[in-house]
Amino acid sequence: MSAPKKPKAMDRRRFLMDTARAAAGCAVAGTLLSLYARDARALPAEALRPPGALPEEDFLAACIRCGLCVRDCPYDTLVLAELGVDGAATGTPFFTARNIPCEMCDDIPCVKACPTGALDHGLTDIDEAKMGIAVLVDEENCLNALGLRCDVCYRVCPVIDEAITLEREHNARSGHHAIFMPVVHAEFCTGCGKCEKSCVLPEAAIKVLPVRLARGQLGEHYRLGWEQMDENGAPLVDGLIDLPDRLPGPGTDNLAAPGGFEPAFKLPMGGTGQ
């Protein structure tokens, strides 16, 4: 301040240098921060977001990590991620189904507590929640799949008979018993994690996965003829030719069963091909 005045050009030069230095430093810091933020966006598969959570990309812009949802969860289901301990972005709320699942409160206090709408206030019916989707990941160790009657995951499901059903199958091993296969129906499963929590195996055979991992996706252009037929009451295209179904039998690849049809043309060598 009290230093003797330097020539103007020097001042400007210094100013430009300082500015450039600060800008460059901050650009480097910004790049590092962005890369780190990008990395930290990955949510581990076991970490489930609270009910009504926006899709992960939006969630990280919306959630201010205040923990009010955590405080209002009566079952201590939700926790805020701790740096280096939990995989979710530091300070964001999540739960681990195998520890404490979501009890699907009717009044959804966690959503009500959220000041930002990171948990969508439009969710008023907990049955509509999509925290994840249960998948019977291990059909070899699931006791029901082995032919026993465990049924626990089915019994505990708050949306029993809709989100999870037992499908009777033939037990090919014994030849004369049934298998009651737990089958999850994604449309109704909320991902609460009660089934995963209750699975009696030391490592759950049924696990709640994030929707992105649990589900495939049909191509945009796929049309399921039978569904369209139901909607329309008739085939969509008039005069649609009903092509013969490929049933097993002579004249087809499968010669074993009766009821096949004659091939439209014979192979030139006189054989029927293989």
Binding site: L33, S34, A37, I64, G67, E82, V85, A89
Partner: peptide, 30 residues
């Protein structure tokens, strides 16, 4: 960085909230 990554970027490193949130909710390695 927030605009670029679509996240609340400073909260990934902010020592202030890391410390305060850590003390109130559990600190991990923050």
């Amino acid at each position: 960085a927030s605009a670029l990554t679509g996240t609340i970027a400073w909260e990934f490193v902010n020592p202030i909230t890391m410390l305060q949130r850590g003390l109130v909710f559990g600190i991990g390695f923050a």
